[in-house]
Design a protein around this nucleic acid. Sequence first.
RNA 1: GCGGGCGUAACUCAGUGGUAGAGUCACAGCCUUCCAAGCUGUUGGUCGAGGGUUCGAAUCCCUUCGCCCGCUCCA
Length: 526
Amino acid sequence: MDRLVALCKRRGFIFQSSEIYGGINGFWDYGPLGVELKKNLKDAWWHDIVRCPAIGPDNEFLEMVGLDCTIIMNPKVWVASGHVGGFSDPMVDCRETKNRYRADHILVAEATVSRNSKRDSLGNLAVLDGDTSVTDWLKRANKFAKKSGGGEVFPVNIDAFAKYTNLTREEQLLVIGPDTDKPGTLTEPRQFNLMFESYAGAVQDDSSKVYLRPETAQGIFANFRNVVDTSRVKVPFGIAQIGKAFRNEVTPRNYTFRSREFEQMEIEFFIRPDTAHEWYKFWRDSRFKWWQGIGLTSSHLQLREHDKDELAHYAKEGAGTSDIEYKFPFTDPGYGELEGVAHRTDFDLRQHAQHSGLGDKLKYFDQELQLQLQAQGLAKEEIDKRCKYFPHVIEPSAGADRGTLALLCEAYTDDPGRPSGVVMKFHPRMAPIKAAIFPLVDKDGMPEIAAKLYQDLRTTWNVQVDNKQNIGKRYARMDEAGTPFCFTIDSQTLQDQTVTVRHRDTLQQERLNIAQVRSFLAEKIG
RNA sequence: GCGGGCGUAACUCAGUGGUAGAGUCACAGCCUUCCAAGCUGUUGGUCGAGGGUUCGAAUCCCUUCGCCCGCUCCA
């Protein structure tokens, strides 16, 4: 990983943001090669999702439209989405053990023990919220009882627990932390607001407070009505968006993997509620195949269905959530999430219907269903009731920066056999530079032929000419940039109009007529 | 936020109190007929920053900033 980070810096893929001022934690810049790589990823996504989407499970072309929303929206959006409440979890530190807990995950109950037919207190014991809270607590209580002279602990049930957050500060000071044996080691709960705040307008007070969006999805939900009213889309259809999002992470870590400013590629796909399972499976599987199709072909890519207990609040009742994960060098042997595919039910549209006051006006009217039901001869009231609904949503949400990082990790290949010692084996569609053109020597008319070929190819692809230094160094530079093809003009070119093409991954060369170079690249890159 | 480690040239590093160095890269020129060959030259560092000790600090002390690893959180 260190070698990859060094290469990214050296070749201009990724720089630390504002490096000359000492950098800033959790923010990263893309250099000349990195921006091409990331743009290729985003362009491929936009092309394959919006412009040229696959055939759906209903054997129809998918109906997809794009959207580009602002980063700052009316703050009520974030109240409705639950981010204002849910993204500011109070945290508690333990001074003794240096552990940190979510305050609302700490449960407290007084432990009492029976001694000499009296009931003695052992103190207010804390445990972490979970399936085993009661048994964990009992184990601790028994341990405390044993230490302090025996006796039988009075059992408790789940209702006996108080949340740490609901205690007064005086009560909190009496709590014995989850991993200590003394009271008073836990700090006061502190807010970690995961949304960046700013102010719209000159006056900085609560009335002008705004947030930088923590996800692009809410802009899509907020525009649901506009898109339906203006673009003739019919359920099932999707709205796609690529854009920046911001989360004030407690600990940005692992290179660009958890950045505070990052870019998402999100789809909200609106469907009839009763078709959720088939659409969920469709998106889960097609998104997995897509990542494979742009070069993540190794066993480092995996699809993982979420367990019930890790589902987000809005997805509990849904068809499921799964992650497309990549085994990064820093997560190995674990995996890190590239994209989440979630059935969000109708949670978000309902929230916005309620908070905006629009209510049923935000519902979708399904005219196709209306025709079907009319044909079945149902009563008008029944038809209206069933045709007007909040569509359910399947959300494939991918990280563009994480995707770019996965492409870099996948491509990185040590090869002591070649001069550079390392080669970036990007899929040709993703490669920042598609081809390089080398005059074997910088004279005898070769540079002129190279320039002519460059003039032709650059109208379609990002190509480079390099006539500096010997040919080996030039190949080595292109290996580190991950350029899949190098065309070399040599003395034979002067006689028969052929050039050599050198394949990055195999080092093999073949001769090609210079007139065929364009069709060769078109076939290999698409 | 807490604990541990690390900051010297664009990169990899040497330099433990006495004039800041090496290799690589980059750039210019020469040379060069297929994988970082060779020659000449050039650019580039207030040694992360600030303060202190000292005749003198990259080096010792304090503070601070940034990065890496762990805890917590998370896409």
